[in-house]
């Protein structure tokens, strides 16, 4: 039970001439908001939970689909794990982006945003802070997955460490771009359940009707058509190219430009959405 003070608390306000605080810069605001979200990582439970699914996929696919390495359309001389891992980076990153929407919707439901509305704060910094947090979390997540893949499954692509880091950076950027679409949706819809559904429904076809796990050439014709228009295919191909050290400039630039465009459009829509009371 809480105790109640009998004496009148001294909380000097107006008369003391105020604190003289002149308001914070947008940079400070973004950092404060990112820091606020990052405190969630104090409980590693969250990070571990979000690692379970990609880890299970890594184990299952690396064992189940091994034989594909001998199948049609597979790069000659490569192990399946080398083929799989760059794709896991992209799909995990994209999946985190889907989670960003639900996370933001939850933030918006939390009453604390109501307080920010009546404060001298740019609401868009709430969004940028959130996105920054997602980026940090995602980097941790993908880093752990990469180490696990190298240590446990012998992931060692032809592109070496540099190629792998480039693939990681690309996957992070793609995830960041996609996250802004989800952030925009969340700032308009503001419903956690809907955002979770959107993430879930969008993710599966994107992930499986793509070049992530099997070469597109081995798919039925209709699925090939889907996979060829699936942007994730291009992101996966670019990431894989970087890891293999055989990336074409156009595939990498294509993935980067598309992600940047998503971030730009998503960001603009989100900034409008969040201002609605």
């Amino acid at each position: 039970m809480s105790t109640v003070t009998a004496e009148r608390p001294t909380v000097r306000t107006a008369e003391s001439g105020g604190a003289g605080w002149q308001g914070s810069s947008v940079f400070t605001q973004v950092m404060v908001f990112a820091g606020r979200s990052l405190r969630a990582l104090r409980e590693p439970r969250l990070l571990i939970m979000s690692l379970i699914q990609p880890f299970v996929m890594l184990v299952l696919f690396s064992q189940v689909f091994r034989g594909i390495a001998n199948g049609p359309g597979f790069p000659a001389g490569a192990n399946y794990i080398d083929y799989l891992m760059p794709a896991i980076l992209v799909t995990t990153s994209t999946q985190s982006a889907m989670g960003a929407g639900a996370g933001l919707a939850n933030d918006l439901r939390n009453g604390v945003l109501g307080r920010f509305r009546a404060m001298p704060v740019r609401l868009v910094s709430v969004l940028v802070g959130r996105s920054l947090y997602d980026l940090v979390r995602n980097t941790l997540q993908l880093g752990i997955l990469l180490v696990a893949a190298a240590a446990l499954f012998g992931f060692a692509p032809a592109g070496g460490v540099v190629g792998t880091l480039c693939a990681l950076a690309l996957a992070l950027f793609v995830g960041w771009g996609v996250s802004w679409v989800l952030i925009a949706l969340a700032s308009w819809l503001r419903n956690v359940e809907v955002m979770q559904m959107v993430g879930f429904i969008a993710m599966f076809p994107l992930m499986f009707a793509s070049s992530a796990f099997v070469p597109v050439g081995g798919m039925p014709e209709w699925l090939q058509a889907v996979a060829r228009v699936n942007p994730l295919t291009y992101a996966v191909d670019a990431s894989r190219g970087l890891a293999f050290g055989s990336a074409t400039a156009s595939s990498v630039v294509g993935a980067l430009v598309t992600s940047a465009a998503l971030a730009l459009v998503g960001g603009a829509l989100a900034a409008r959405g969040i201002r609605r009371p």
């Binding site: 605080w21 308001g23 400070t28 605001q29 606020r36 604390v112 920010f116 404060m119």
Partner: peptide, 22 residues
């Protein structure tokens, strides 16, 4: 409805608001 951030401690809540105010 109390608009405090439940994931933060009492002190962190106040520090956050103060930082945002400059």
């Amino acid at each position: 409805f109390a608009s405090v951030d439940e994931q933060l401690t009492g002190e962190e809540n106040l520090v956050m608001i103060a930082r945002l105010l400059g």
